[in-house]
Design a protein around this nucleic acid. Structure first.
Lengths: 350, 350
DNA sequence: TGCGGCCATGTTCTTCGTGGACATTTACCG
DNA sequence: CGGTAAATGTCCACGAAGAACATGGCCGCA
């Protein structure tokens, strides 16, 4: 017998407040030319009736959809979730994105697309056509995919590219890699270390260069030498082990090592253990990733925390605020350092 | 100079295929009375033009919105994310929900609401009014909140209650707690254990009872005694420690302990260490949660894996498939066991 | 052969809730 | 009192669904 609940629309508000539809619409869209008295009356009615605009109708009428699409790589995301590890990236992204969207009255829709290039254009086109989002947040590895960026430009949809520093189109939002490396290095220097080894990532990642520069700069500022203290890995475990071995067997065995990925850090830790080196007594270790495994290993590792949530929050704000995605300066967000038990003053100082 | 890209609408498809709007609409909505020839022609045009119906327009026209809302508790979700731990629940939920939605042409919107009761109704009303979802997935602690369920019923929105076994309204979808406990117990029995302690959760959680029953049943089936092998905690660390101590100091010291939360399990592990008990040599330990900390602790713990992803997938399917959320049997999903290093044959057998 | 009836399709119109373009009213100023 | 700008109202478009109804072709049946 219960009647179908009829939603309260702008019409009901108009009737209740005794004004025209358009006036209500103006109030909703914060247009300036509304007398304070009217405004108050309409707002009161909205409040009383619990009116909330339908995003579908708003979108239909040519306004915003108040929807932001977060474009993630399907395989990578699913793999991370299914294996129940390595999802930090996605989590943090959701955290930053969701909250920022909510703050501004937007919603975020997570869209998983295959990187496989045949599908990606079709999938993206379909998503755009169906959702008509006001903005799109691109995450690696999509951030520099020109197929995607061109498509978005064509549709005049604002978008942000997370983890990319290449200027326009869209907003580039990235972490301050050099600053992070500097932060890590300075932390060790402050503890009293003078021989600080650095296991860099592969050269074909731009960020590897930036991180190495940050380390070099911090060392130079402290007047410390860096000869024989740089090794290069490929982010994987085996390469990290080799790099760590090279450093420890080198001319100037470091008392601290910074490694640019969690796998390389864990390899360093393993090697140190095998050689009977106490961590952090004989060797401080610092990771550039802050994955769960790094946090729960013994000892828990001091690590650079990539500000993914802030990055995404930034991206959302830009996308919401500035619908014209023309040339814009990349946004660089500082990293932070979480100090745990794997770094301490070198024993020689104790 | 670039013309504003005009979206391809149902009209373009009709023109391209040389049929009427109505026919296209019939094809899209899978109405039966369309000749195969027509159907193929229209489908070809849709394909060629890359037409995708606008969900906004579909919603406006009284059809579905193809949107599902996942209602999560804001505090709990944010805390989990921010602390970078304990987000497994949300992650798995997203995994199961997102994928299942995508498979069926739906999208999922994650909505965070405060449990604080003043706001919750307003927030939910607003979300419903704005999004007009076809369905809502409720997660603890919302699953049994009558304020929410009534509101959803009133709006005739299909919904599922995850982690709840109380029948209707809406679909209840829960894990097989008793089966999980049985699974855990049988694993230990198969390893050769005969004295298996059980640290249950507090009585005011229904699931505590079910779990205990599962353990009792498995023990009984194997003809093993359970006297003095049951202890009760409150899911917290301290209570777990006390419970473990009670078991180990009891009349029949167990060679294996099942604890119903990660905190109680970790407490058991700590106590075992302090007493010089080797895990799993002297004492096998099995957890009922599978949080990251449980996976990375030493030794990594064998644990019941709650099938959150499947639960959510189930919930989504029901909500999508059956728009009439009248009385329905609760859906029970089996749990699985992930075997790690904390369980082994008791030393006495070696 | 003619008629009723059904199926596939086309035509036309309405609905949904909102924003935009434009028309109209009001108020104030010189 | 005319001019002008601000405040407010009227009407229509947006994209799709679907109802109501018209059409034409085909069938079976007398």
């Amino acid at each position: 017998m219960a009647r179908r609940r009829q939603a309260v629309t702008i019409r009901h508000v108009a009737a209740d407040a005794g004004v025209s539809l358009q006036t209500v619409s103006r109030v909703i869209n914060k247009e300036p030319s509304v007398r304070p008295e009217m405004l108050a009356r309409v707002k009161a009615s909205i409040e009383r009736l619990g009116y909330v605009p339908s995003i579908a109708a708003q979108r239909m009428a040519g306004s915003r959809s108040y929807l932001i699409v977060a474009l993630n790589d399907r395989e990578r995301t699913i793999a991370g979730w299914r294996d129940r590890q390595g999802t930090d990236w996605v989590d943090q992204m959701l955290l930053g994105g969701l909250l920022t969207c909510a703050e501004h009255g937007y919603r975020m829709i997570v869209e998983l697309v295959d990187t496989h290039s045949d599908h990606i254009e079709r999938e993206l086109r379909a998503a755009i056509a169906a959702i008509r989002p006001d903005g799109v947040i691109l995450t690696p590895p999509h951030s520099e995919n020109t197929l995607i960026t061109c498509l978005l430009e064509e549709h005049r949809i604002a978008f942000a590219r997370i983890g990319s520093r290449i200027a326009g189109p869209g907003f580039a939002v990235a972490m301050d890699e050099a600053g992070a490396a500097r932060l890590a290095t300075e932390h060790l220097i402050a503890l009293g270390h003078r021989c600080i080894g650095f296991i860099a990532g592969p050269d074909d990642y731009e960020l590897s260069g930036w991180r190495t520069e940050g380390w070099l700069a911090a060392m130079a500022d402290a007047g410390l030498p860096t000869d024989d203290l740089l090794a290069v890995g490929d982010f994987g475990f085996a390469s990290g082990r080799a790099a760590a071995a090279a450093l420890l067997d080198g001319a100037v065995p470091p008392t601290a090592i910074i490694a640019c990925s969690d796998q390389m850090t864990l390899a360093t830790l393993e090697l140190a253990r095998e050689r009977g080196l106490d961590v952090p007594g004989d060797l401080s270790i610092l990771s550039f990733d802050d994955t769960p495994i790094v946090r729960f290993v013994a000892p828990p590792l001091t690590a650079i925390v990539q500000p993914i949530a802030e990055l995404t929050a930034c991206a959302v704000k830009r996308v919401i605020g500035d619908p014209a995605p023309e040339a814009a300066e990349p946004i660089i967000v500082p990293a932070t350092l979480t100090i745990r038990a794997s770094t301490a003053a070198p024993r020689s100082l104790a």
